[in-house]
Design a protein around this nucleic acid. Structure first.
Lengths: 148, 148
DNA sequence: AACATACATTTGTATATACAAATATTGTTT
DNA sequence: AAACAATATTTGTATATACAAATGTATGTT
């Protein structure tokens, strides 16, 4: 991936802004690959993220604020995101009996099955995304990302 | 920046998905810093990007398709993005005399002045973003990003 | 118990983005 | 020149996201 080529400039860009552009371009590419991997399942990346969090709960229900806390991209509107998963039958939701302000969200069996298939699709996406990487590259990249 | 801490998980995540989450978290952070740096000027990152492209034209007008081609994040709706810059008086737009299908967009003097101030704000943002980086880190990061 | 405060979620609304169809202009073919 | 295709942009519409205000519930204070 050549930054200058993609944004069609002949000028040399200083390293600081260039890195930001580079990050954005890579981000765009990752999102695009993941988005098309999830397309057959008709869930967004955010919805997929929530499903994985719910599976991680191992049967325990999660409420909206814990979902929000654990989401990669925190958003203001977790209610409506869960609404969509509910409509697809991938989660169920009920008011918490011990504290009726809270809501209890759990992944359904259908949700778990769908998620397994999504996992497989994501493994394929990884192959595409990481085709030029070896294990050492990934470790070095993670170390550098930690500096942000 | 510790991935596991931010998404509040105790589990060890395999390196491939972890890197994707890491990239997303860093991206979120970069966007947030840049967004607040540009907030006083009331322009979005996309609008800022377009202004920089127009300045790079050195007086030559640009049409919508060249803008789209050079934008970091290509979007379907460059017309309405330019509308907003137009309303702020930062660009002007007229139909191309030689090919009336096209449109000619140029940055105004006000736009150039505003852009200079935004550049300063962005330099400050760089200081925040890159406070833990040295030149060598940046070069290594760019090399690794090229692998995507 | 009445009141104020804090908490968890929902709703309203404005803005942003994505995708497809519509419009206008130019170029090409017959 | 009429018809058709190609190009450049605009518009309509559906969906997504962001932010603030509103709702309902629980807790602590007097």
């Amino acid at each position: 991936m050549n930054v200058e080529e993609i944004i069609k400039t002949s000028k040399k860009i200083p390293l600081e802004p260039r890195t930001l552009i580079h990050m954005q371009l890579v981000h765009n590419k990752i999102i695009e690959v993941m988005h098309s991997a999830l397309k057959p399942f008709e869930v967004s990346l955010q919805q997929f993220n929530v499903l994985r969090i719910l599976r991680g709960q191992q049967g325990k229900p999660a409420n909206l604020s814990t979902l929000n806390e654990r989401m990669v991209t925190k958003m203001s509107n977790t209610t409506r995101l869960v609404d969509k998963l509910l409509n697809k039958g991938l989660v169920n939701r009920c008011v918490c009996p011990s504290n009726r302000r809270k809501v209890e969200i759990m992944i359904t069996d259908d949700g778990l099955k769908a998620l397994e298939q999504m996992d497989e699709a994501l493994l394929e996406a990884h192959k595409t995304i990481y085709k030029n990487f070896n294990q050492n590259d990934l470790e070095k990249l993670n170390d550098l990302l930690d500096k942000f």
